[in-house]
């Protein structure tokens, strides 16, 4: 793999890079079963997490990943009240540049903001989710998880259900899945699924149609209840009825041996019923575990410009 400074999206990765990142996540995961879970790969390096959006899971996942590679981890706490203007982001970049950190893991509610940070810092920037744009490490862990159950991913069908419009996960994960030879389709309310002419991804109007397509994996997206402007659907109850994995749908899913995935955190009773959380082919917890392995792989392979 040629030296790469940043991981901002899936589109900029070469096939070889995707292969390398996924391949080396497996030995990282093996480490977790050992009594000593640490390797000295990033000893002496500093990793900084810069989250402008509340997140516990992704942030901890990155922290654990960095610590298992023996890096020093700092949380840069951004008080949301002081970050109303774009100027302060630039000032923050200058501050970070002066701190000489090696890796910056950033999450921001604006699409494309990590690109700006990456352009203005020597540290490696890892996009941990930006607006509705990209979430590349989520995409890697999703595909890694599917590869564990289907070593040959070619021709496997993944149905992504829910709020595609605002989902960086849907964009990144569907792009990577397609590049690994999987077929992807969307299902969701008309107000939350962009037109197929823009996405290049077929879209079903209901679960019956989608089931007839014979998906191998049902990938549920988190419903964002906290949208402030005009609502995108009438109620969580109605959403669950039409687009949720209900107990009836779970029967069909389990009957046909489909897997269930979700990037978390889950809204029980909205995207998914309680029963489905305990379904044997529900991979949600595996995704969390694989997330650490894939993030270790990413940290391990990036080359900050701070080193030479």
């Amino acid at each position: 793999m040629n030296p790469r400074k940043d991981l901002l999206n899936i589109a900029s990765l070469t096939d070889e890079e995707i292969h390398t990142l996924l391949e080396s996540a497996a030995p990282m995961k093996e480490l977790f079963t050992k009594s000593v879970k640490k390797v000295p790969a990033l000893k002496g390096k500093s990793v900084l997490t810069l989250f402008y959006e509340p997140s516990t899971r992704t942030r901890s996942s990155f922290e654990v990943a960095a610590e298992r590679l023996s890096a020093d981890v700092t949380n840069f706490t951004v008080s949301t009240s002081s970050v109303v203007k774009g100027e302060s982001v630039h000032d923050t970049i200058d501050t970070l540049q002066a701190m000489k950190v090696d890796y910056i893991i950033v999450r921001h509610y604006h699409s494309g903001l990590p690109d700006v940070i990456a352009r203005h810092t020597k540290a490696s920037v890892i996009n941990a989710g930006d607006g509705a744009h990209a979430h590349p490490t989520q995409a890697l862990l999703d595909s890694f998880t599917i590869k564990e159950v289907y070593p040959d991913t070619r021709g496997k069908r993944v149905l992504i259900v829910g709020d595609i419009l605002h989902s960086r996960v849907a964009r990144s994960t569907s792009m990577l899945m397609k590049r690994l030879g999987m077929e992807v389709a969307y299902l969701g309310p008309g107000s939350l699924v962009p037109k197929t002419q823009y996405t290049g991804i077929p879209c079903f109007s209901d679960f019956n149609e989608a089931f007839a397509w014979k998906p191998d994996v049902i990938y549920l997206l988190r419903v964002q209840k906290e949208r402030q402007d005009a609502p995108f659907f009438p109620s969580s109850r109605e959403y669950h009825k039409i687009y949720g994995v209900t107990e009836e749908r779970l029967e069909r899913i389990s009957g046909e041996g489909m897997y269930i995935m979700h990037p978390g955190p889950v809204n029980r009773g909205v995207e998914i019923c309680d029963l489905a959380m305990d379904y044997e082919r529900c991979l949600i917890n595996t995704q969390v575990e694989n997330g650490i392995a894939c993030r270790m792989s990413v940290l391990y392979h990036l080359t900050p410009k701070t080193q030479h």
Binding site: A11, G112, D130, G131, A132, P194, Q197, Y198
Partner: peptide, 17 residues
């Protein structure tokens, strides 16, 4: 009010409304 570009393949890829 909140839109940033033309609805298109680009707006989808960039995640811009």
């Amino acid at each position: 009010a909140k839109s940033l570009m033309h609805p298109s393949t680009t707006s989808y890829q960039l995640g811009l409304s």
